[in-house]
């Protein structure tokens, strides 16, 4: 069996990349070609139009595609998550200074951010915050962070910046902050332009991140792929393999980023400010076999967040169509 799997180069594509590069797919008798794409929209379109068999995709975007809310009509299934958490909100050093939160704790940071968002909105210069795609946990986490501090997403200018351009955008003052996945927050801190203000895992601990999304007609042929994915995820979740994994991901073929920054993300040993402040967060980004499981309530969470972001009008009506999308049973069936 020969498959084309798409991905966006990010730390949480580890299991998909290792599936191929670690020989796990070959051991199942499969030939898998990895296709790196520069945007989530292109992954979604190629998957919907049958140019890819599967993809590492933002869970909300995959669901939106399946529901007909985004891109060409598609019938998709998601048998597994690919990682847990891994996002963070990074702000410019100027914004962090202006926020001056009472502490680094989430409620203080959220209050300081929401207060500043309100001041800037009132002054006619709304804060500009970036996400990675409208249909993403990143968008919803920004909304939740502001809500936690008593603010609203409507009071900021929400834009999308491709993660590899976040550092330059922050440096040039085109944006005030962003929510992206690993390793791009660490890259901004290492470049001396950003301060990690909040971790996704603190804002929404169980939120679905990327999922392995397959064309629905792959269902009957998914078992060998899912067995290989389990083996690859186990390998990725083993701390002794992290230095090798960081080198693999950091290589030019994939992320083209300093492997040490990737490794610190895997270990949850994050430098949060250019002054060297470090924060230990072992669950910042979780890889491994357990991270493949899709928690019950995942679909509901996404539908409710879509509705809160005014991307979906009627949650109850969408529930039926969403029911067949998450297929943890397919993963559970192959051991």
């Amino acid at each position: 069996m020969r498959l084309q799997l798409g991905y966006v180069p990010l730390t949480d594509a580890a299991a998909v990349i290792a599936l191929v590069e670690g020989g796990f797919a070959a051991r199942e008798g499969m030939r898998v070609d990895l296709v790196a794409e520069p945007s989530w929209a292109t992954l979604r379109d190629k998957l919907a139009l049958g140019l890819l068999d599967g993809a590492h995709l933002l869970a909300p975007l995959a669901l939106a595609s399946h529901l007909g809310l985004s891109g060409p009509p598609a019938r998709l299934i998601a048998p597994a998550a690919l990682a847990r958490n891994g996002n963070a909100v990074t702000v410019s050093l100027a914004l962090w200074q202006a926020m001056a939160p009472a502490s680094d704790a989430l409620p203080d940071v959220a209050r300081a951010l929401a207060r500043l968002a309100e001041t800037r909105f009132a002054a006619g210069r709304p804060l500009c915050l970036a996400t990675v795609h409208p249909f993403s946990s990143h968008t919803y986490q920004l909304g939740r962070l502001l809500a936690l501090g008593g603010g609203r997403l409507d009071l900021v200018r929400l834009v999308v910046v491709p993660p590899p351009r976040t550092v330059e955008s922050l440096r040039r003052g085109l944006i005030d902050g962003f929510c992206v996945g690993a390793p791009w927050n660490s890259v901004a801190v290492a470049a001396g332009v950003g301060r990690i203000a909040a971790l996704g895992v603190d804002i929404a601990p169980a939120c679905p991140e990327k999922v392995l999304t397959l064309a629905a007609e792959m269902e009957e042929r998914a078992a060998p792929l899912l067995r290989a994915l389990k083996a690859a995820a186990r390998w990725c979740g083993t701390p002794e393999h992290w230095p090798d994994l960081a080198r693999l991901l950091g290589g030019r073929r994939h992320l083209d980023v300093d492997p040490d920054l990737i490794l610190r993300g895997l270990r949850g040993d994050l430098q949060v400010a250019p002054d060297g402040s470090v924060r230990a967060a072992p669950d910042y980004l979780v890889l491994g076999e357990d991270a493949l499981s899709l928690e019950p309530g995942t679909a509901t969470w996404m539908l409710e967040e879509m509705a809160a972001a005014r991307q979906l009008a009627d949650v109850a009506a969408a529930r039926g169509a969403a029911a067949g999308f998450l297929r943890p049973d397919l993963l559970a069936a192959c051991d």
Binding site: S39, L69, H133, V160, R310, A313
Partner: peptide
């Protein structure tokens, strides 16, 4: 072009949802 990383930016800018004021039709 599909090779551009900026496609996601356009999805936000034009608004992918039918609920926004000036919704966008792709193709």
């Amino acid at each position: 072009h599909l090779e551009s990383p900026s496609r996601d930016l356009l999805e936000q800018m034009f608004g992918v949802s039918r609920l926004v004021e000036r919704p966008v039709a792709m193709f």
